[in-house]
Write a protein that binds this DNA or RNA. Structure first.
Lengths: 187, 187
DNA sequence: CATTAGCCATACCGGTCGGTATACTTCAAG
DNA sequence: CTTGAAGTATACCGACCGGTATGGCTAATG
């Protein structure tokens, strides 16, 4: 399924540039020509490496997803126990936002732009959210907390709600409040 | 600021058609020509009534926002007391989704597509979320619940998280779980 | 009864879109 | 020493974008 791209130096630069532009300005309004000029690369090089804009979009979403999951796992691993790990996920959210994710969730945004029903980004987005949901449920179960699945959904809603409302709703303490609510759920 | 549009029969049809298309397929990929042909109208009529695509977009967002706020207020008014009213907001969310809002929040989606920093849709989106936040805070205060503002943020996160995760995350019980969490918050 | 607002039909505008074609250079590896 | 992959530069393609122009028809209104 996933075309294994050879990550040449130019390809790396292209993906970095595209990722930044896609996240900041949106996918549709960012043209291939713009990416090329911003990356200091010819349009042909983009198509030699990635084949199509859609492939580039998917590479952007996949890589961003990988980076985010790794960040979450790092925060979970650093927590002393399962209860603390649940809260730590919200610390990772604060870090994620501080490190540039101030325009909401890339998956949610992509979903809004790529409306074609069969677009592969839909499956990736659903997979990411289901992954976090399962991660929450596992941690709650490991902590011996009852109704793990139901509370996991609550945590997911708080997490995603905080990410989007910090931007769209301009609620500056959204992440803090979400973390506090999470702390109460695992208490 | 808001151009008072004369809602002729054609204008009504245009706005209805555009609203449906914008919400289902997204704003950018839906062209003015498509709206015209789907509404059985000439492109010129669209520009005679609305002036620009941007004005049409704003009319779409504003009207949708009005409908939604009215729905929420109706549910609040029907509740026996302030505590029940908070929960009733989540009932209105279930109704809203059942009546067609199965592609997340139009404001959040618009935010993802219209990245221009000064676009008026940003202000409208922020206003909508701040309105719901204030509505929650007022109800909590009226019910004599302490820490009204903090809990209001929690409710907002649950609400928005549920709306987006029911779609993107394919969490089918998102709204139910959010309502249950709300019930616990006001208990 | 003339005027005008509302609408339709068609054609057009410059600009941008994703994607392709051709030809030349650079450089590392067999 | 040659070959091939990676890259540059430029020009081009058809399609579509938001928006405009011209002109004619209809119906309600002063």
């Amino acid at each position: 399924m996933t075309a294994d791209l050879k990550m040449t130096r130019a390809a790396r630069r292209i993906l970095d540039t595209a990722s930044e532009l896609f996240y900041r300005r949106g996918i549709t309004p960012v043209g291939v020509d713009l990416i090329a000029s911003e990356a200091g690369v010819t349009k042909k090089t983009i198509y030699d490496r990635f084949g199509s804009k859609d492939n580039l979009i998917m590479a952007y979403l996949r890589e961003r997803d990988d980076r985010w999951r790794a960040l979450v796992e790092r925060h979970i691993a650093a927590a002393p126990d399962a209860r603390a790990a649940v809260v730590a996920v919200f610390d990772s959210l604060a870090t994620w936002r501080r490190d540039g994710a101030d325009r909401g969730c890339a998956m949610v945004n992509a979903r809004a732009e790529l409306s074609a029903p069969g677009h592969p980004s839909r499956a990736l987005a659903a997979d990411q959210k289901q992954w976090l949901l399962a991660r929450f449920a596992d941690l709650l179960a490991a902590a011996g907390i009852p109704h793990a699945r139901g509370k996991a959904v609550e945590l997911l809603l708080l997490h995603e709600g905080a990410l989007v409302m910090a931007d769209v709703g301009q609620v500056d303490d959204a992440v803090d409040r979400a973390r506090e609510a999470a702390r109460r759920i695992v208490a």
